[in-house]
């Protein structure tokens, strides 16, 4: 059985300072396929272009060159409002620094993507409460971010990423600001979302052990993919030709 190729990147290039003498190419022709339901990790040294790639994957940024198909949709044809809608419905972001709205309660933060998605008010609150329960944060739903610990904030952020039931969760160093123990709790939530809900998860991490836990790891070096391998016992039938 062939699995759905939810992400297909061909020859993705990202350059800054375009057209100036100090033009800077950060990504040099990335080819990447991700299948629905995969748990993928991206590793690489600082400055290797992981976040840049992640921003393109998450429809926050456009590549300078190359083709990106998200769920078979060619992204170069999508206008800004369309990108907003894709971010809203198909992508769930989890950031290293949580990026919660400081003035809003945990519940409101979780409900926010649904607000932009046009979900009715009562349904928003109901689902937000349900998601907070999923990450075991029900007790803190009316607290503001500055009243929460780092681990708690990140759990709220994961609940928010799940709000519109996106196909893909993109997490950029979600455990980077947390201690090992809390990082473990957060990682366990990702495993649960992957196993119980079949979410496609792409995780950027500097932690080799955490990367080992995922199904597949991609290594970036200076803007190119230098390694793409399956981890441990994970095998996916017939998905990959050799790298």
């Amino acid at each position: 059985m062939m699995r759905n190729k939810i992400i297909e990147m061909r020859g993705i290039v990202k350059s800054y300072y375009l057209g100036t003498p100090n033009e800077l190419e950060i990504l040099h022709g990335i080819d990447l396929d991700v299948y629905e339901g995969e748990f993928l990790s991206i590793v690489g040294a600082s400055g290797s272009g992981k976040s840049t790639l992640m921003n393109i994957l998450g429809a926050l940024d456009r590549p300078t060159k190359g083709h990106y198909y998200l769920d078979h949709l060619p992204m170069e044809n999508v206008r800004d409002d369309g990108l907003s809608q894709i971010r809203n419905k198909k992508i769930g972001f989890v950031f290293q620094t949580f990026n919660l709205i400081p003035r809003s309660t945990a519940l409101k933060n979780v409900a926010l993507p649904m607000l932009y998605g046009g979900v009715p008010r009562s349904e928003r609150s109901r689902r937000a409460a349900e998601l907070l329960q999923l990450v075991e944060m029900s007790g803190r739903s009316h607290h503001r971010p500055n009243e929460l610990s780092g681990g708690q904030k990140q759990r709220v952020a994961i609940a928010r990423a799940m709000a519109n039931d996106p196909a893909i969760i993109l997490a950029d160093e979600p455990t980077g600001a947390l201690d090992t123990h809390t990082g473990r709790l957060v990682m366990d939530i990702f495993h649960r979302l992957h196993q119980e809900q079949g979410k496609t998860i792409i995780l950027i991490t500097h932690n080799a052990e955490l990367a080992e836990e995922t199904e597949r790891t991609i290594r970036l070096r200076d803007g190119s993919i230098v390694d793409n391998r399956m981890n441990g016992n994970y095998q996916l039938e017939g998905c990959y030709e050799s790298v």
């Binding site: 971010r87 993507p113 932009y116």
Partner: peptide, 16 residues
């Protein structure tokens, strides 16, 4: 500015 960025990442359109 940061809040605006967060909102946009969560899918807020420019008009919103």
């Amino acid at each position: 500015t940061k809040e605006i960025g967060i909102r946009k990442a969560l899918g807020a359109r420019n008009s919103a």
